[in-house]
Structures are given as C-alpha cells and as structure tokens.
Design a protein around this nucleic acid. Structure first.
Lengths: 221, 221
DNA sequence: ACGGTATGCCAACGACTGTTGACTTCCCAA
DNA sequence: TTGGGAAGTCAACAGTCGTTGGCATACCGT
C-alpha cells in the first residue's frame, strides 16, 4: 500500500485526443504551441508553467523541452508577433484613424497573442524588449507613412500605442467591466477620433486654452 | 577551508544603516515597506521575492513574515492605493480634461506605486481585482461628478482609464522610447483634449463619417 | 521477421520559493 | 544584578519550477 499513484492528468480543458494513440511530430508540435499560446495569454510568462502547458497538450513536460529546447525559446516562437498591418496608402487622410482602429479590433478580438505579450512584457524584461521591438519595427514605420511630418512619426506612434495598448490592457487584461461590456462598434466610434487626432492633427496647443491667459506652465498644476 | 561563507549581502541599492545597530520596530517596519514598494514596482508581485526585499532592507527574510504575516499581506499594505483625486467641482466643464490629466501627472511622475500595481495586475488575479476595485470606488465616482448624464459615467470612466493607464503602461512599464522622452507638459497638451472628449462630448457618432454612406457596420471591416 | 528510429513516459536533480520555529543578542525595568 | 521581552539571525521544511537522461513502446523500411 505504498500509494505511489502518479496522479492522473484529469485536466478538463485539455487537447482532445483519443486515448493512447500516437501523433506525428508536426501534430504534437502544433498542440504544444497552441497550449502554450493559451497559457501564456492567460497567465503571463512566469505563471505559465511548462508542466501546465504539457498537461493541456496531453503530453509529458519533457516533450516540450525536446521540441522547443527551453521555456524561453518556446515563448519566443509562441509570441511570434506580426501585426500584419494592411496597406492603408489609399485611405483618405481624414479616415486613417477609423481605418487603423477598425483593423486593430478585427485583429485583437479573436487573437489572444496580444494579451499574452502584454502580461509578459509587464514583468519580464525580455518581454518588454520584444514589445519595444514590435513598436519600432512594425507600428513605427506604418505610422510614419500616415503622418505629415516624418520627424513627428515616433512621437505620434507612441501616442497611438498608448491609446490602443490602453484599450487592450483595460479590456483584455484588467477586464474593467465598462470596457468589457462595450461593443467593438461603439468602442471604434469613441476611439477613431482620438487616433485620427494623434495621427494627423497639428501639434498642440492648437490655441491658448480658453481666455484666461495666466498659468502658461501647466506641468505641475 | 569548508568555504561555508553565507554570501554577504552586498547589494548596492540597500537601505543605509550603520553596521550592526538595532532599530526599533517602527523603523524596520517602514524600511521593509519601502523596500517592498521598490521591489514590487520594479519586478511585479511574482518576481519580487521576500528574500530580495529583506536584503534591500538589510534584514532577515523571517522578519518580513514576523511584521507582515505573509507576502500577500505585505503587498496589500504596500500597494495601498489612494488616487487622492482632488475636488474638481469648481473647474469649468470645458477644462475638466486638462485638470484631470495635469493632476494625474503630478501624482505619477514621483510615485512608483502605479507601475507596481500595473505590473502585478497584469499577471496576478488578486492584483487585477484590486485594480477593478480602485476603478469602481475611486475613479468611477469622481468621473460621475464630471459627466453630464450619470448613466454614461461608467463607460466614460472606462475610456478615461484606457487612455491614462495606456500612458502609464507605455511610459513607465514598457518604456517605449517616444513615450519616455516626451515631457509631461507636451504629453498633457496631447492628452487633455482626448480626456476632455471622453468626459464631456456627446456620444459618437457625431456625424455619419464622411459622405460615402455605405458600410454602416464597421465592426468587422 | 527484424532492427532502427521516431515518439513518448518516468523519475529524478538542483535551484529557488514562502514560511516556520528555535536560537542568540541586546536593552531596559524592577 | 537579574530577568523578561523585543529585535534579529540561522537553518531547515515542504513545495514548485525548469531541465535532464534513461527507458519503454510503437511504427516502418528492408
């Protein structure tokens, strides 16, 4: 009565696979990758354990190492991130904000990669570096093609990122109720003017705020 | 020559305290709390270890437990978070955005509690719940006093949070270069109109976007 | 039929974590 | 002077993690 039962895996949310059959290499590689994406998205890099990913893929943890070498390498390929920004060169300049916001929602609502990246980049330095790289190599150049003055592109791209990532954060990660309940269509109507302004409007201050001409310096209240 | 040296703590960023003197209870409690705030802000809940916090405070890890009971309890008191939103009831309605943005910057630029909360809420469910609580009990009511229609308060508060937290995320956590380099004053000029619109402007769409009247549904492109 | 190879499981290592309890050291009041 | 309690140290427990190597089983070309 040594009770040496190794605790059967009875995870309800696991890959569906007939009992005991063998899969070919490609299938398990894909299964691992899919489980990894889900776990990284739900828990972030640190809390997503190799053991949990393996359990979801109905496989031994050692197989993950065999196929992907290390956890860091697994994350690197799981979080391969291509914004796949479409060509917006034929969109009229005054509709760029609407086009960009619409596209980002069609991209995010069904893809949990961004929350995964967000969760990871918040705590993992390598994740943050990856986020900065995506910003520099993908969003940056795309925004550069939309703005009037190329010198202002990085700054405007940063502002766009602050609003779009803020929405992703509050809606998908923090799950603030009002941001979860609102429909994508309504959200697009609210956000499009903001993004449009960050992309195309002249640098503020447009006019000196209101009539009372004192307190020119608004930095520290 | 058993080499049993227990590895002296030679952390350069540790609490400065004369060698070997004893402190009273209050002093070490405060030292622990200060070290905890720094560590939680820099690393988030999971990666900030009790041992590292204790080392920063030049103290044994067991003392942290003696004074605060558990890591979760320590975080709870370290991340005690009061937005300390000022009374904006005498601010004219068309300057509320500017006032709110200005205030948030004077609050954040010198306080690392928000990054700590952000890093933690991204991965820790309890942290996310705390974030939602802050939103509901502090930002929500404050925004409710600023908007015209009380029924729209939660939604508008959510939009405000999405932009402000997005700035905190990109500037303090992800540290996207353009968002780090920009000065608070410039950032305020960019953000104030956005927040102002989220607070006070009528619900969009203001007008049917442009002339071409087709594609009413912009949800899925 | 057979041997090699691909696929997979099992048990364990070493490191690190939060947490605990016993022990030492010092100050201060009686 | 002497005890008691506060302040702090030390070593260890129990658990989890990424990672490793050895071993079993199934497939397939010859």
């Amino acid at each position: 009565m040594t009770e040496g039962v190794p605790e059967r895996a009875q995870n309800m949310v696991a890959e569906s696979v007939a009992g005991g059959v063998r899969r070919n290499s490609e299938a398990t590689r894909a299964a691992i990758l899919r489980a990894a994406r889900h776990r990284f998205a739900a828990d972030g890099y640190d809390r997503a354990t190799i053991r949990a990913i393996a359990a979801d893929a109905r496989i031994d943890p050692s197989m993950v190492m065999r196929y992907y070498g290390s956890k860091e390498n697994l994350f690197a390929t799981a979080a391969e991130f291509d914004l796949r920004l479409p060509d917006l060169s034929d969109v009229p300049a005054d509709r760029l904000g609407l086009a960009l916001v619409s596209y980002f929602f069609t991209r995010w609502e069904g893809d949990s990669t961004l929350p995964a990246l967000l969760r990871t980049a918040s705590t993992n330095p390598a994740g943050a570096e990856r986020m900065r790289a995506i910003f520099t190599t993908q969003l940056g150049p795309a925004v550069a093609r939309m703005v009037a003055d190329p010198d202002e592109a990085p700054r405007r791209a940063g502002l766009v990122a602050s609003q779009l990532l803020g929405v992703a954060l509050t809606r998908y990660v923090l799950r603030l109720p009002p941001m979860v309940d609102i429909t994508p269509a309504e959200l697009i109507d609210w956000l499009a003017p903001t993004i449009q302004r960050y992309l195309r409007d002249p640098t503020p201050p447009f006019v000196d705020h209101e009539v009372s001409g004192r307190n020119r310096d608004r930095t520290c209240h």
